Simulated assay, not measured.
Amino acid sequence: MEIVLSAVRPDSPAGLTALRAYAGELAARWPEKAPEPTWSEEFLADDPMALAPPSGVFVVATRGDWVVGCAGLRLEGADVPPGAGEIKRMWVDPTVRGQGLGRRLLAHLTDLAREAGLRRLVLDTAEDLVAARALYVREGFVETEPYNANPYAHHWFTRDLW
Rank of each mutant, 00 (worst) to 15 (best):
E2N: 11
S6H: 14
S6Q: 13
A7N: 08
A7K: 06
P10Y: 01
P10H: 04
S12F: 00
P13M: 02
A14F: 02
A14V: 01
A14I: 02
T17I: 03
T17M: 01
A18R: 02
L19C: 04
A21Q: 06
A23Q: 02
E25P: 14
A27M: 06
A27Y: 04
A27I: 05
A28F: 10
A28Y: 11
W30C: 07
E32D: 15
E32P: 07
K33T: 04
P35H: 11
P35R: 15
S40E: 09
S40F: 00
S40I: 13
E41Y: 06
L44N: 02
A45I: 09
D46V: 05
D47E: 12
D47T: 06
P48Q: 07
M49I: 04
P53Q: 11
P54L: 01
S55M: 05
G56P: 10
R63S: 13
R63I: 03
R63D: 13
W66F: 05
V67A: 08
G69N: 00
A71I: 08
R74V: 00
G77K: 09
A84Y: 09
G85V: 09
G85F: 09
E86A: 12
M90N: 05
M90H: 13
M90C: 15
W91N: 07
D93E: 12
V96A: 02
R97V: 10
R97T: 08
G98Q: 06
G98C: 02
Q99E: 12
G100K: 13
L101K: 06
L105K: 03
A107E: 06
L109P: 09
L109W: 05
A113E: 06
A113P: 11
R114Y: 05
R119Y: 10
L121A: 02
L123T: 14
D124W: 08
A126P: 07
E127S: 06
D128H: 15
D128C: 08
A131T: 10
A132T: 11
A132L: 12
R133P: 00
L135G: 10
V137D: 13
E139P: 08
E139M: 11
F141C: 09
V142E: 09
E143F: 12
Y147T: 01
N148C: 15
A149N: 13
N150I: 15
Y152L: 14
H154V: 03
H155Q: 04
W156C: 09
W156V: 03
F157M: 15
R159L: 06
D160Q: 05
W162F: 13
W162K: 09
